[in-house]
Design a protein around this nucleic acid. Structure first.
Lengths: 336, 336
DNA sequence: TTGTACGCGTTATCAG
DNA sequence: CTGATAACGCGTACAA
């Protein structure tokens, strides 16, 4: 393995000069050229470990997520990776299963590993985030709000919930339920609030049509089954995230029903068998849907862009940006 | 930050002794106890960077995958993470997009970062794999065959393709097409071979019913659209991976068709509209399906177990196992 | 068994 | 602007 001393000897300079060339400090041009030539000749690659030890900071960024099997978060991960790799950083993915204890462990590890920074979709208002900030580590919170003085990138979740519900209102549905995530998850609460606002705005009753499930497929499935079994079932449902949306659609399909484009569609052209038909609105995308989604009111999100935005913010901090904490609202695609 | 010297002083021993206790070498019990107490008191956590520099090997494992957005590979990743984390290793995910150049870069990085080992689903017969082996780094190849002397964990892909096709034969289909991945991908080729064997065994003609698409949703979608447009379309299709399967089902759905449980089902009860009905067999799982899959012949895979198996193999190597390269055939669930 | 002292490869300091 | 050298924190010969 070739080390920095080899390069130095080969170029007839000191190791300090080699280091300076590699790190873009000012060096006499002819010496710099000699160093670059030597690096090329010997195929020298700096040892990141030694560099990290000396700098007291590695070039690894932690990406802490509630569920890496959720396509939403894998897309976020790609976004983060794209820009981090470009800048020479590696990305480590950490899965918390929405468990604050797991999350705490990962954040502690990030600190002890001297990682450059952390992008986290928090399971809770993690005290460890404050700890990292206190140690002057770069931290960017994504997707979910936390009440702390830290960089954040989030969607306008109230607006997203409102748009999904309004789309159903516009199609003529009157009893629009909402299946959302846990009350501890800000996206679940905010999108549900948007749903309620849309109903209020249209003069419709929310009644007992708000269901807090989990943010997974089974949550949406079970909630839909329960809604359909009610004495006075809704005629439409808003799912506040992608997986819940999958659950809603699958529950409909298993009941030999289908998403309805309008109330008329629901009562008239009973399709396969004679199962239920429901208006369906979903906040999120369905990259692996196996059915037509043209009758579903999709409110797309572009999670990959969320990731790139967060990563750029993080890189700014790593480059020494000392501005006060920023709060960025991530744009979403216009939708159909 | 507390260092090893602090612990040593606190316990009244030398740094060497502290190190020995931490690494499980033989130390007089009372001293060991004192050291542990000091570690506890001071909340000491060893600096991984310094340790890596000294050991010339970090406790990071690279997981190099063709597509981290494919639920199959995210499940593999969880399997790897589960056992790696347990053993104190971090996992870095690397996305190659099936591009040999990208893959080569990541494997080179793994080497220069002194990563402990690599688990890789190769895009090609990477020469870098041999290079890593030559440097005595632990490497485990998963999912796809490579013609090299290296640990491998793969499914019995010929059998999987055969099972999917046989299930359709058993349901009475006679013209069974196969949509598979690129010829450069061993899983695509092997599962197609299995499909062909099943047809041969049943006395059916394969004709020109083999289609090489890509291993993504659009590959399955386009191939299905093309098959349906033929003068003599097939009455069933085998999709050799999960994403292609999604594409097949979505193409059917968009044509207002559906998967058929049997040829009779296909001609009789024309369901919604009057689109095509096809027998469908899929090698893989559909965690985010939005339609009923009871009429689809699914051959499940348990990718998470693939990951845990590979990780265990890797850990064995990291623990000093010097046996000749092993080739493990990963069991698959029995299927319905 | 324990302690001392050196080395891992790089960067930062400080003199020149 | 450049070179010599001292850290960074840990593991491990070597000597005791």
């Amino acid at each position: 393995m070739t080390r920095i001393v080899d390069v130095a000897r080969h170029a007839g300079v000191s190791t300090a000069t080699v280091s300076r060339v590699l790190n873009g400090k000012t060096v006499r041009p002819e010496l710099a050229a000699a160093v670059r030539a030597a690096v090329e000749d010997l195929g020298y690659v700096p040892d990141r470990t030694a560099r990290s030890l000396r700098r007291r900071s590695s070039d690894v960024v932690a990406l802490v997520l509630p569920d890496v099997e959720n396509p939403f978060f894998t897309a976020v991960a790609r976004g983060v990776e794209d820009v981090a790799q470009e800048a020479g950083y590696s990305v480590v993915l950490c899965n918390t299963d929405d468990d604050p204890a797991k999350e705490g462990r990962y954040l502690a590890v990030a600190e002890h590993e001297n990682m450059a920074g952390v992008v986290v979709a928090p399971a809770s208002g993690s005290p460890e985030i404050a700890a990292l900030r206190a140690r002057r580590r770069a931290v960017v919170v994504i997707d979910r709000r936390v009440g702390q003085d830290v960089d954040q990138v989030v969607f306008d979740n109230v607006a997203l919930g409102r748009r999904a519900a309004q789309a159903l209102v516009a199609r003529g549905f009157r009893r629009i339920a909402c299946v959302t995530g846990p009350v501890a998850t800000s996206t679940a609460v905010d999108r549900a609030r948007g749903w309620r606002e849309a109903l209020d705005g249209a003069g419709l009753e929310a009644d007992d049509l708000l269901v807090h499930a989990n943010f997974r497929v089974d949550g949406g499935y079970d909630a839909t089954v329960a809604l359909l079994a009610r004495p006075d079932p809704p005629d439409a449902v808003v799912a506040t995230n992608n997986l819940v949306g999958v659950g809603v659609l699958r529950a409909l399909a298993d009941a030999h029903g289908r998403p309805a484009a309008s109330p008329a569609d629901a009562v008239d052209g009973q399709g396969p068998g004679s199962g239920p038909a429901l208006g369906v609105g979903i906040v999120g995308d369905l990259p692996f849907a196996t059915s037509r989604t043209s009758d579903v009111a999709l409110v797309p999100l572009d999670p990959r862009a969320l990731g790139t935005t967060a990563a750029r913010l993080l890189l700014d901090r790593l480059a020494g940006d000392e501005e006060p904490a920023r709060r960025v609202v991530q744009e979403t695609p216009a939708g159909p």
